[in-house]
Amino acid sequence: MTVPVRPDPAKLSRAERAVGAVVRGGTRIPGLRRFLLWTPVARPGFWFATGVAWLWGRLLLGRYRHAHGVRYFEGMPTWAFGRGGTTIGAIYLTSTNTAPSVLEHEAVHVAQWRRYGLAFLPLYIAAGSPALTNRFEVEAGLEKGGYVRVRKPRSGDAPGTSA
């Protein structure tokens, strides 16, 4: 009789631990990741998250707007969202962080929510909190999201050289 070898949890990626590779007694549940990311499963999660965010924005008396392909509530209390703003489903919640570049960044997050549905929550958390290494923030554009500043060349710098 052979005993199944349990995978080393340290060798599993965060995403595998969060979604798609639920380990029970060393056995992987085949197809779980594909099922959770399947459009008929993911899309209702996206709609549910959108409805919750819309309700949250209305209850906290945010002003509903639409620009650069993003629906958002501005004027929200700062405790009602993370950092400069948070996208949940198709809704971006913020106080005043509505620059066009930020809204373009948030539009990518809306597309991510649409693709992953509610699985986006554990996937985003598993990707890690430092934005510079979070694949979802990198995909959305760190500069547009305000995570890094664009270095402007000094007047004496020649193109292609560094100081």
Rank of each mutant, 00 (worst) to 15 (best):
residue 119 A to R: 02
residue 132 L to A: 14
residue 103 L to W: 01
residue 134 N to E: 11
residue 129 S to V: 14
residue 124 Y to N: 06
residue 132 L to K: 14
residue 141 G to A: 13
residue 119 A to I: 02
residue 129 S to Y: 14
residue 128 G to D: 11
residue 139 E to K: 15
residue 140 A to D: 01
residue 119 A to H: 02
residue 111 A to I: 13
residue 123 L to A: 08
residue 114 R to A: 06
residue 116 Y to F: 15
residue 105 H to I: 01
residue 125 I to N: 05
residue 128 G to A: 11
residue 123 L to S: 09
residue 118 L to R: 05
residue 107 A to I: 13
residue 103 L to N: 02
residue 116 Y to N: 15
residue 116 Y to W: 14
residue 138 V to C: 08
residue 136 F to I: 07
residue 110 V to G: 02
residue 139 E to L: 12
residue 141 G to I: 14
residue 130 P to Y: 04
residue 139 E to M: 11
residue 138 V to I: 15
residue 116 Y to L: 13
residue 126 A to G: 12
residue 115 R to D: 10
residue 111 A to Y: 10
residue 139 E to F: 11
residue 112 Q to R: 05
residue 106 E to A: 02
residue 109 H to S: 01
residue 127 A to F: 07
residue 106 E to P: 03
residue 112 Q to W: 04
residue 128 G to P: 08
residue 134 N to I: 07
residue 118 L to G: 06
residue 122 P to R: 08
residue 120 F to K: 11
residue 128 G to C: 09
residue 116 Y to Q: 14
residue 116 Y to D: 15
residue 141 G to M: 08
residue 132 L to G: 12
residue 115 R to F: 11
residue 120 F to G: 01
residue 123 L to E: 04
residue 121 L to W: 12
residue 131 A to Q: 09
residue 101 S to G: 07
residue 110 V to S: 02
residue 123 L to R: 05
residue 101 S to Q: 15
residue 117 G to C: 11
residue 126 A to S: 12
residue 116 Y to R: 14
residue 138 V to T: 06
residue 124 Y to M: 12
residue 126 A to K: 06
residue 135 R to I: 14
residue 122 P to N: 08
residue 126 A to M: 05
residue 102 V to E: 00
residue 101 S to E: 15
residue 130 P to W: 05
residue 116 Y to A: 13
residue 100 P to G: 07
residue 125 I to S: 10
residue 127 A to V: 06
residue 138 V to Y: 01
residue 130 P to R: 03
residue 124 Y to H: 07
residue 130 P to C: 05
residue 114 R to M: 05
residue 133 T to E: 12
residue 139 E to W: 11
residue 136 F to R: 05
residue 108 V to F: 03
residue 103 L to E: 02
residue 121 L to Q: 09
residue 119 A to P: 03
residue 139 E to D: 15
residue 119 A to L: 01
residue 119 A to V: 04
residue 111 A to W: 07
residue 136 F to H: 05
residue 101 S to V: 12
residue 140 A to V: 06
residue 120 F to S: 07
residue 106 E to H: 04
residue 126 A to I: 02
residue 136 F to L: 09
residue 110 V to L: 02
residue 124 Y to I: 10
residue 114 R to E: 15
residue 117 G to E: 04
residue 105 H to R: 04
residue 137 E to T: 01
residue 133 T to G: 13
residue 131 A to R: 04
residue 137 E to K: 04
residue 141 G to T: 13
residue 112 Q to V: 03
residue 105 H to Q: 13
residue 138 V to P: 02
residue 107 A to V: 12
residue 123 L to G: 10
residue 103 L to M: 10
